[in-house]
Design a protein around this nucleic acid. Structure first.
Length: 645
DNA sequence: ACTTTATGCGTTTTT
DNA sequence: CGCATAAAGT
């Protein structure tokens, strides 16, 4: 029997041991939200609920993995059978089983952000729209996504978000229509389709809805404040009744994804949608020293219309957060280097420290400085390994090998050949009859015959790699195909295309090893589009990751904590970001982001405010201290100037 | 004429 | 890194 009272405080215990019925846990930052979810899962299993009857929806795959691992150590190995993952992941898993019910193949292709933008661009060109006044593909993708995730008509979204642009709303709708048709034709779902079709599956098909309602006796949702309307509908439908077994955990103060359609009204209206919901508040913060919490509380108090919560400290006194007024980005980097060295001398490891910023490019100057003075830094970069060109190239080869109809993969692969671009790729695809059966040597030879000599040479190398690969069936190993591909063709391509070709070669071999270790190549390919950079970085950390300072955007730091945190570029226009303030005329989400940043720190928080910003071209702009700093009472901060501290 | 490739520049946040 | 534009290649 688990001694819950030993590991949980009274509020956490109440949430963990609550009986059936809806439950809303308002868990402020650092109050043991994860602990509560982990023990709730353990408690349910202990009560006799079959693990496979529990659905745990999280914001990242990493969060699900961590929670289930911990639940496993508390409740035993059976916890591994709990369904856990992101909404996209769970929808994908359901859709792989039932896709034909919606007119899709089981092996539909997932289009990542790049793929869908490319497809949208194709639609625009096909409809001969384009032009100066017409929105670009990113804007269009954003509009489509917004409409889907908020369940609003596209016309309204275009009307409100694009009123300054004198473009025809109907044209935009035409592009969307064409985009939807094109996706259907290519058997492709984009990220939004996974959610949309996951929801359609259980709303339009009663038997499937019943199946999953019966299977999932308990549904738990983490980071509920960052769900969008579609996701909330998905959960509500699966729960089925207003007295169902649904537990949602969240903190409206930490809703930072509304630009992606998240709507913290989901959490605000939860008590109205589930009138009998029990509400538990977790306010005892175990993470940070009181001085840091005071700053966080003072900051978030500026936002109206939220569930009132105050972080109460449980820890003893530490020291006040430091505000560093520095000359410019260079001095900012210098201050951080000195502070890092000082913390190292006092016994902290580099992995105990993190530098947080609003946008990736804010960190470039610091990265260079850290490199110069040999302080190892782990950057959670904007694009993960799987999203980088070389991974995608290799994945395209594997995808095409396993699915002759994967046009996106074909295009990508064939365009690597010299003298072949999108146009020739399209012609070739047509000439081949909309299939590229790599399993069939005769078909591969046919393709070779259609290519120009320069391109043919490259294709022949790929051809022999494919030949070797299929010779081993059914025990094909991805690493073998990748090895042949790299040696015969890709290494040469990489060396003439990129500076850091050898790193990329290493990455690609690593990718092969990972696929060999996964259950099957096909399963890996079906999941890979949903794996994110943070999943990947953490995967590596367990491996050979050395001790390093973490550099991260605030968004990617969500759910993490460090003894020492630096927030850089706390100036107007950068944090809050100029775009966010201009577009929304409401800075509350940016303030929540600042709140998330401050509450990542356990012992020490340093906020840096440079006075000048060097833009390339030699221009210098003065910086104004961020409103988020200015609105904090002076007495809560320890202000230092320049290099004196 | 049509395609591919080279060059220079600007960057919010991401499943 | 991706995008737009201009130049080179077929």
């Amino acid at each position: 029997m688990i001694d819950y009272e030993r590991f949980l405080n009274p509020e956490q215990l109440e949430a963990v041991t609550a009986g059936d019925g809806p439950l809303l846990v308002l868990a402020a930052a650092g109050t043991g939200k994860t602990q509560t979810l982990v023990y709730r899962v353990a408690h349910l299993i202990g009560r006799g609920v079959p693990p496979a009857a529990i659905l745990l929806l999280t914001f990242t795959n990493r969060a699900a993995r961590e929670m289930l691992e911990r639940a496993r150590s508390v409740a035993g190995d059976s916890a591994a059978e709990v369904w856990g993952g992101t909404f996209h992941h769970v929808c994908n898993r359901m859709l792989r089983r039932h896709a034909p019910r919606l007119g899709y193949r089981h092996d539909f292709i997932i289009a990542d952000r790049d793929d869908s933008r490319k497809l949208i661009d194709d639609c625009v060109k096909e409809l001969k729209l384009g032009g100066k006044e017409f929105p670009g593909k990113d804007v269009l993708a954003g509009l489509f996504s917004h409409a889907v995730n908020r369940d609003e008509p596209l016309e309204d979204v275009v009307g409100t978000r694009l009123d300054h642009l004198a473009c025809n709303i109907e044209d935009v709708c035409c592009v969307q229509q064409r985009y939807i048709e094109l996706k259907e034709k290519l058997a492709v779902m984009d990220f939004d389709d996974l959610l949309l079709n996951g929801l359609r599956l259980i709303t339009e098909h009663e038997d499937i809805r019943r199946l999953y309602q019966k299977q999932f006796q308990h549904i738990l949702v983490d980071e509920y404040q960052d769900t969008n309307l579609l996701q909330a509908q998905f959960v509500d439908t699966l729960v089925g009744s207003e007295d169902g077994n649904i537990m949602v955990v969240g903190d409206d103060f930490q809703c930072i994804y509304s630009w992606r359609g998240a709507d913290f009204r989901n959490i605000m209206s939860f008590p109205a949608r589930y009138p009998n919901a029990r509400i538990v508040r977790l306010e005892r913060n175990y993470r940070s020293v009181p001085e840091i919490l005071e700053v966080a509380n003072a900051s978030i108090a500026q936002n109206p219309e939220q569930f009132q919560k105050t972080l109460r400290a449980t820890r003893g006194g530490g020291s006040r957060p430091m505000l560093h007024i520095v000359k410019d980005g260079r001095e900012q980097a210098e201050v951080i280097v000195r502070l890092i060295r000082r913390y190292q001398d006092s016994g902290l490891a580099l992995r105990d420290m993190a530098v947080l910023y609003r946008a990736h490019f804010h960190s470039i100057e610091l990265q260079m400085e850290l490199g110069r003075v040999n302080i190892p830094a782990a950057v959670t970069s904007g694009i993960g390994v799987f999203e980088q060109a070389h991974s995608k190239d290799v994945l395209a080869l594997l995808r095409l090998a396993h699915d002759p109809q994967d046009r996106l993969a074909f295009d990508r692969l064939i365009c690597l050949l010299p003298g072949v671009g999108p146009r020739t790729a399209a012609t070739l695809w047509h000439k081949l009859g909309s299939v590229c059966d790599c399993r069939n040597p005769a078909r591969r030879a046919q393709l070779a015959g259609l290519l120009r000599p320069a391109a043919r040479e490259g294709w022949e190398a790929i051809d022999s790699a494919l030949d070797d690969y299929f010779a081993d069936e059914p025990h094909t190993r991805a690493s073998k195909l990748i090895g042949g591909f790299v040696k015969g063709f890709y290494e040469g391509y990489l060396t003439k295309t990129y500076e850091n070709a050898s790193e990329r070669v290493d990455d690609v071999y690593e990718l092969g090893a990972q696929i060999d270790n996964s259950p099957s190549v096909a399963a890996f390919l079906q999941e890979v589009a949903l794996l994110t950079n943070t999943d990947q970085v953490d995967g590596r950390e367990t491996g050979r990751q050395a001790d390093a300072v973490r550099l991260s955007t605030v968004h990617q730091a969500k759910g993490l904590e460090w003894p020492v945190v630096f927030i850089i570029w706390a100036v107007e226009g950068m944090f809050p970001s100029a775009r966010a303030v201009g577009e929304l005329a409401d800075d509350s989400e940016e303030r929540r982001l600042f709140y998330v940043a401050t509450t990542r720190a356990r012992e020490a928080l340093h906020i840096l405010v440079p006075g000048w910003r060097h833009v390339k071209g030699g221009q210098i702009y003065p910086c104004v201290q961020s409103r988020f700093v200015t609105e904090i009472p002076n007495r809560l901060l320890d202000t230092r100037y320049g290099l004196k501290f």
